[in-house]
Each structure stands twice: as C-alpha cells, then as structure tokens.
C-alpha cells in the first residue's frame, strides 16, 4: 500500500493554495494515508490549515530557525530524512517545488517525476513534455520512493474536512548547510487575485505596447475581478513584472476564464493556458495562432475594443 508525504508550500505563515491541489493528486493514488510535512520556523498556523484539508490524515511539523525561508539546500536534507517510510513524496510544481524536489530526489538516489498531471496507478503517471505537445505515460520503479512535482493546474484543490487531522512535531536529525543564505524577496504587492488560483485572468502581450498602456489591462481585470497575466514578450519588454508571465517557463494556470489581449499565441504561451475553461482572444491580426485555441475570438484593435468592453460590462 502507498503512503504519501506532501510537502507544504507556504509563505508569510499562510498555506499556499498549491498544497491543496497537491493533496488531490496524492489522493488519486488511493493511498493508505496522505500526510503533510510543514518545514518552517513557525509552523503552527500553516499546519493547522493543512490539517483541515480533506484526505489528510496527519500533519508533521519541523520547526527550525533555518526554515524561515524556503531554501532548497536547507529543506531537501530534511525532506530526504522525513521520506523514510513513505512510498511517495509529492510537491507542487511551483517554483518552490521545482527547486526543492530534484534536490531531495537526488539525496534519496531516485528519479523524479516532473509535472505529474494524471495518475493511472500507484507507479504510473502522465506528464507533459515538449511544452505540452506530448503527454507521456511514465512508469516509476516500484522499488523506489516516487518523488514527484504535481502540475497544480491539472488538479482541483482538496476541500475542507469536517474535522482536523492531528498535528505532530517531527524530530529530525539533519545537519543543514550554511552555504546558502536568503537575502530578500522582492514582490509587487497587489490586492488583485492570485494569478495561480484566480477564476478569471486577463493577460496582455506585446500588442499592449508599453508599461503605461498596460494600465488598461489592469483596469479591465479589476472590473472583472480578475488576476493579471502577461506573455513573455510583455515581461521582457518591461511592461509588467516577471511573476505575471504565463506559459511554459512562467505560470501554468487553469482559470475558468482567460482573456488573451494582444498576445499572438506562441506555443510556449499556450502551454500555460491549455486547461483554462474559456479562452477569449482579442487581437488585430485575424491570422494570429491564438484564434486556433480561443473559444471566443474578436478581431480588432485592443485600444478600441477594451473601452467598448468596459462600457458593455456596465
């Protein structure tokens, strides 16, 4: 029987939404137990949230000052130690999980499955390759611990359980390196919904033309209560910060509504939105590849259409 350890992702004392999605993937393996490990300097609040996730049978915490920031070199040795007794170790395929999981897998001497999107059996999974242009069935060695990152856009968030799973402190003997030090996290504070979990996303591309012009994307998003995304070209050109990039090398998202405005629809961008419910494309070029995947397409100048849209929205 399988027993799965999910590594919680958290920030500022809050459980990240990616963890609940990772728990869903773990439950799809139909294991005997899904347990969550919280590595933090102050794990209590995060652990309490994780304990309320449906399907979680136990939450383990390791409180160490070194865990104040998610540094892979610090976390991986603890995860490798904690993995004993588990058949699977799952992390979300966010920059957190992508950074940590391979390091933990290598310490365990095992392969790692990236971007797990489907579960066929306890050791058979599907995952994307080639920017999502091939879906590969992967068989892991049943004799080894399966370390995987979970493609969060492929999984719903686990619901809230009626009660709370027990929370226990875990004693780990792990010597931690001092060669890696956190300096700072620079983030643009925003009251807008989080791009990775938002139900609606409005994205702008190179067609928006400038940082100043990008305001019309923010305004439309605010009107819709949507998160804001961008193409790589828009980020590279400095119209908006890097954390807004959607695509193969940015965020992979699955909102109910995705609006691509002034975005051509390059394969690397489309990889990030394949699981969106409804895709709307606004582009002045009727031949733009984005229209091949759009559920609703509108050809025209975005600077004319967006004000009209806002008006029609009332």
């Amino acid at each position: 029987m399988s027993k799965i350890l999910v590594i919680a992702e958290h920030q500022c004392g809050q459980l990240n939404a990616s963890t609940a999605r990772t728990v869903s993937a773990a439950r799809a393996v139909q294991p005997e137990a899904v347990e969550v490990l919280v590595l933090s300097d102050a794990p209590d609040a995060v652990a309490a949230d994780a304990a309320k996730l449906e399907g979680v049978s136990r939450v383990l915490t390791v409180a160490r000052a070194e865990n104040a920031h998610p540094l892979a070199a610090i976390l991986a040795p603890q995860i490798a130690k904690a993995a004993a007794g588990y058949s699977h170790v799952f992390l979300p395929s966010t920059t957190f999980g992508k950074d940590v999981a391979p390091r933990a897998a290598a310490l365990l001497g095992v392969a790692q499955v990236s971007e797990l999107m489907g579960v066929e059996s306890a050791h058979t999974f599907t995952r994307p390759m080639y920017a999502g242009n091939a879906i590969v069935t992967v068989e892991a060695d049943p004799a080894q611990t399966v370390v995987a990152t979970v493609r969060t856009a492929s999984w719903p968030a686990a619901g809230q359980a009626a009660g709370s799973a027990p929370v226990e402190a875990l004693a780990l003997e792990a010597t931690l390196p001092t060669h890696t030090r956190f300096v700072e996290l620079r983030q643009a504070r925003s009251d807008r919904p989080d791009l990775q979990s938002a139900r609606k996303v409005v994205s702008g591309g190179r067609g928006v033309g400038s940082k100043e012009n990008f305001d019309i994307i923010y305004k439309l998003a605010d009107k819709l209560g949507a998160a804001v995304g961008a193409s790589r070209a828009a980020v590279d050109a400095g119209y908006c910060p890097n954390e807004m990039q959607v695509g193969q090398t940015g965020k992979i998202i699955a909102p109910e509504l995705y609006m691509a405005i002034g975005i051509s629809g390059a394969i690397q961008h489309l990889t990030g939105i394949k699981d969106a419910g409804t895709i709307v494309a606004i582009n002045k070029d009727a031949e733009a590849p984005i229209f091949e995947v759009a559920d609703l397409g509108l050809v025209g100048d975005l600077f004319k259409i967006i004000p009209e849209l806002e008006q029609a929205l009332g």
């Binding site: 950074d99 060669h179 890696t180 700072e184 996290l185 954390e243």
Partner: peptide, 14 residues
C-alpha cells in the same frame, strides 16, 4: 536574483 512565483528572490551562495 531568482525568478520565483512570488516575485524576485535574492540569495547568496558560497
């Protein structure tokens, strides 16, 4: 400087 989901993280390594 690292591009992470939350923004830009700066770390120092030996």
């Amino acid at each position: 400087t690292r591009e992470v989901d939350a923004g830009l993280e700066v770390i120092e390594v030996d």
